[in-house]
């Protein structure tokens, strides 16, 4: 009932502290607030090699109400860095989707930096499972 192979051999795991440090580097040392940003991931990955990840930030995306960028991290990968999205007024909305690699069950983290310097974070656990069995 199981995929007995399939986990990629990976070097020693990075710690969640590395991810925290990357968040702080991105925000310039500011602790992110919750709210405004919504991270959407599957609860269980269908395939750890390609996990869809979407973010959406509440913003008019005009005038001063602009999202500058969104940092995506995976706190259980050997290197937590995943991607950084950059938005402009021409983005129309601060929403984007990509697909990422997750080595094991872990948290995906998204941090939004607004044009006014305020920062917001959301976090979701994604389970990477061996698979098999069922009802």
């Amino acid at each position: 009932a199981f995929a007995v192979t399939g986990f990629r051999a990976l070097p020693a795991m990075a710690s969640a502290e590395d991810a925290d440090k990357m968040v702080m580097d991105f925000t310039g040392g500011k602790a992110p607030e919750s709210g405004k940003i919504m991270l959407n991931t599957p609860e269980i990955a269908e395939n750890g090699n390609t996990v869809p990840v979407s973010v959406e930030v509440e913003s008019a995306m005009e005038g001063d109400d602009l999202v500058d960028s969104v940092l995506i991290l995976a706190d259980g990968n050997p290197n937590p860095a995943v991607a950084t999205f950059h938005f402009t007024a021409m983005s129309g909305s601060a929403a984007a989707t990509t697909r990422i690699r997750l080595a094991k069950t872990q948290n995906v983290i998204a941090v939004a930096k607004m044009k006014d310097g305020s920062v917001y974070m959301d976090k979701k656990q994604v389970k990477v499972t061996i698979g098999g069995c069922g009802g």
């Binding site: 090699n49 290197n79 995943v82 991607a83 021409m90 983005s91 989707t97 990509t98 690699r101 997750l102």
Partner: peptide, 26 residues
């Protein structure tokens, strides 16, 4: 779009093979 930046992304190795992006443009 017409020479103006709309959206961009910096990618690290944790982005999957065959990178996919979905985003908006006004």
């Amino acid at each position: 779009f017409n020479g103006q930046p709309v959206f961009s992304c910096d990618l690290d190795p944790a982005v999957s093979a065959n990178p996919y992006f979905e985003f908006n443009a006004k």
